[in-house]
Design a protein around this nucleic acid. Structure first.
Lengths: 214, 214
DNA sequence: CATTTACGCTACCGAGTAGTATCGTAAGTC
DNA sequence: GACTTACGATACTACTCGGTAGCGTAAATG
């Protein structure tokens, strides 16, 4: 199986266009994928077991394997079902970079800031296990998310809030918030609170752009 | 076994003060610990197997278990044997914060910058596996390392290079370099080169302190 | 009601890996 | 040389976990 269809379901009569027989139960798919994502928010990819998914969903493993060929497929599907991060178009211009950044942090993509962070942590651990997953996570989760920050930073330059002299630093600065928060989570174990994000924004990102918060 | 003696060797006649019999072969200890650390630089804690350590050292597993009661103990001992990060006293004052920071990055603690980074990555993954390891890694590896950055930053304020207005940001800024580099490594997969560290220092840390590199 | 397809259940397989047991042997001490 | 202790080699146990097999049943169609 190649990467492009890695999240597709197992071949079955349903995908072959049959019309009779017991119908495929799509509603339980959502539940399974949601619980898979829950688990991924709790632990590493490697510690997410199908036995546990089966237990929590109340579905037997055989049902899971009828829909997704491998654990990798299931997790991939769960990620995709969670939706992509918001696009720039959907991000209102709050007038200040600080407000823009906070809006991204406070967004409910992947549930909540904390859940999002936990999922990120669970996924980055998969980097060393599954090459296919690594690629997909990068292209569909990490990269689009960092892209938001990058574009918000450029937008701040465009509207004259930030000096264009800093344009070259933006690719690095766009990584600061994700890097600092995952690092805090994984090396600290402490809960990452909102004031931590605020400190990173004010004392690192905005300070590096020579913006001072009043 | 509690945490404080978690890295001690297995109880044996040697530790009971016996005087006869074949002597304990300390020299092979070093080799085993070094190879364990090598493995930890290559993969997660969980993927470091004692079978692999046995294979690479040429020692049977039984020998390993005669010296360290568990895998956790072995890894702990390997970390401790690697030595602690340099103390501030040992860090010469290069006159500029930039030079000081680069000196830390270029230091050979844990072998080389790249190896150090890989070991960090291998260890942080253990955070979710072993609570005891988490505590030790934090207190003996992560925290002393970040402490270096913290003190270099304060030193820059003391000698007047950096405005004292930034004192409050230093705890956050001290995390920037470790956070950015481990994030780069784990989420990217690309090799982290020296110019990346330079970019982080110049465009993030020094910029946030309103220092510009000539 | 016959047919078709998916589901629920349970038992199982196979690989990987932490940790154990045993037994003969090497390297010391008295 | 007797005794003591560690080492080398190998086999084994116990457990986890991804994935499979088989069988009876539920839910749809015609």
């Amino acid at each position: 199986m190649n990467i492009s269809d890695a999240a597709s379901s197992v071949d079955s009569a349903r995908t072959r266009g049959a019309r009779t027989g017991r119908p495929y139960d799509h509603s339980s798919d959502e539940q399974i994928l949601a619980i898979t994502l829950d688990l991924l928010a709790e632990r590493d990819y490697e510690r997410v077991t199908l036995d546990e998914v089966a237990l929590r969903t109340g579905k037997p493993k055989s049902t899971l394997y009828r829909r997704w060929a491998t654990k990798e497929d299931l997790v991939l599907a769960a990620i995709r079902a969670a939706g992509r991060p918001p696009e720039l178009d959907e991000l209102p211009d709050h007038g200040t970079l600080r407000a823009d950044l906070l809006a991204v942090i406070d967004s409910s993509w992947l549930g909540s800031p904390r859940r999002r962070l936990n999922i990120f942590a669970g996924l980055t651990s998969a980097t060393r296990s599954s090459p296919a997953l690594t690629v997909v996570v990068r292209s569909e989760v990490t990269e689009p998310y960092v892209e938001i920050y990058r574009r918000l930073l450029y937008r701040a330059i465009e509207r004259g809030e930030v000096s264009a002299n800093f344009a070259a630093s933006i690719p690095v600065l766009a990584d600061v918030i994700p890097a600092m928060s995952t690092h805090r989570l994984s090396s600290g174990g402490e809960h990452v609170q909102r004031d931590f994000f605020v400190a990173v924004i004010d004392d690192v990102v905005l300070a590096a752009l020579h913006l001072t918060v009043e």
